[in-house]
Write a protein that binds this DNA or RNA. Structure first.
Lengths: 118, 118
DNA sequence: ACAACAATTAGCCAATTGCCTAAGTTTATT
DNA sequence: AATAAACTTAGGCAATTGGCTAATTGTTGT
């Protein structure tokens, strides 16, 4: 049976977290959360030469956080939330394990108190 | 009124995402989710010189994802989930905005269909 | 045809990252 | 007192990152 529900390639997580580790790129994601936009529209808020900004976009696309297509001379970009969700799930999982531990600690402490009462 | 519920400094998010953008450091977080450990205990699974590994730990500590204290010659490390939660919340917020948009799109499409029926 | 627009490519640069080895410091252990 | 253990510091190196300018490509408006 092929593994359709593939867990994310660790390398993908590398790229997603790397992409999010920059305020310019996070701001682009925030903008794109509200809907698609062209490259120059996305670039406008930033005090940066266009080629520099384009590198950020490239990082976002290569991480899978953004997709784009070109029509005529305009490239339109769109957020892709699949990878972002994978990152969120990785974090949630860590916390779940951690909280599982705290729960066991809580149970342990309760058990300890019961023992002390007897 | 002072702003007690400080939203995370963007620079903190930079550091947290940067810290998570490396498989070694994510593996350390996963290990620490299960409980504290010493430096050499953490380093053992990795085929890497100790000073190299220590740099990874330093990145994790400086991002606030890990705290540590030294007793005698042993440094014990512990996961700190505050920063991790901030990162998770940033992602969740983006998705919320995105999904809000999809909801409005859904409402729009419904309204459009009603219009077409009339 | 040609000018303007939107994006892209090429190439340069300084700073940062991620690894290494070698040597040092501070506790234990015998 | 000497050795071993557990880090820690210093310094070197190649690759990557994040910025720039200048020049180019492809598309649209006049």
């Amino acid at each position: 049976m092929p593994n359709y529900q593939q867990s994310p390639d660790p390398h993908d997580l590398d790229n997603v977290f790397q992409a999010l580790a920059d305020p310019t790129r996070r701001a682009v994601m925030t903008r794109l959360s509200e809907g698609p936009a062209s490259v120059s529209e996305l670039a406008k808020p930033f005090d940066m030469a266009l080629p520099s900004f384009l590198q950020h976009l490239k990082v976002l696309e290569e991480s899978g956080l953004v997709s784009s297509k070109k029509q005529g001379r305009v490239r339109t970009c769109e957020a892709q939330f699949k990878r972002l969700s994978e990152a969120e799930e990785w974090i949630a999982h860590q916390r779940a394990v951690w909280e599982g531990r705290l729960d066991r600690l809580g149970a342990y402490l309760e058990a300890l108190q019961s023992t002390e009462k007897e």
